[in-house]
Amino acid sequence: MTYIILIFFLLVLMVGAAIYSIVQKDLLYAVIATGVISLILSAIFLLLQAPDVALTEAAIGVALTTIIFIITIRNTVRHEDDFKDRNDLKSAIK
């Protein structure tokens, strides 16, 4: 089964995108990295022969998560360092 190589490559790419999403200070880039994670996870579900799970992951990961997080960033701050008080989330609202 030579597609094991493709699964390993996609897993390495997904873990790299997850680490990038955690360490990134710009929240817009972190949201885009979350989209990459969802994309690769959907491809892995397809390779593991679960197309219905891949369909649900595509609908949730791209449409719902990205749009809601972008609207949240629009209403708050974009850079993580711009929080006035990290323990008070209401201080981030514009």
Partner: peptide, 30 residues
């Protein structure tokens, strides 16, 4: 497997919408 084409179709449509939303945010018009 013919059902794998449905996943590709859904991802092509929804990925377009996600990129459009990010582009509208960068433009400042969202």
């Amino acid at each position: 497997r013919i059902i794998y084409l449905d996943v590709a179709l859904v991802y092509a449509v929804l990925g377009f919408i996600g990129v459009i939303v990010i582009a509208r945010y960068l433009e400042g018009a969202l």
